[in-house]
Write a protein that binds this DNA or RNA. Sequence first.
DNA 1: CGATTGACGTACG
DNA 2: TCGTACGCCAATC
Length: 119
Amino acid sequence: MKTHPINSKTGQYTFFENVWAVVRLIPIGRVTSYGAIARYLGSAGSARMVGYAMNAAHGQTPSVPAHRVLNRNGMLTGKHHFGSSDAMQVLLEKEGIVVKNDTVNQFVTLFWDPNVELL
DNA sequence: CGATTGACGTACG
DNA sequence: TCGTACGCCAATC
């Protein structure tokens, strides 16, 4: 299900909001990667844009669970963009995800690939 | 409209 | 194994 929400301000489709729509679909206790989302949206090489979208996702409504989006190694690369440096890890742990050394344990098992789960 | 900006990913030494 | 370099491309300035 490729959702393409419309920007309420501009009335235009934006890559950012497509990213947010996918991120909101991530089940609790599961995680995915920037690259996976980029591929799902048809822009395989736009992984950086996904991260950039997360940067702009702060304060969005409905909220965007950006803490469930990690890099391809399952590392919490964006933790510094949350309130405190530990906020992201705390959010994940609240969902039952174990984080050690800024990396999600069992990342492969918990990985939620929109290309597989949604399609 | 060109330059800049990245919460990435891959390649290379 | 680790650090650096670079391509990627939408949004912003």
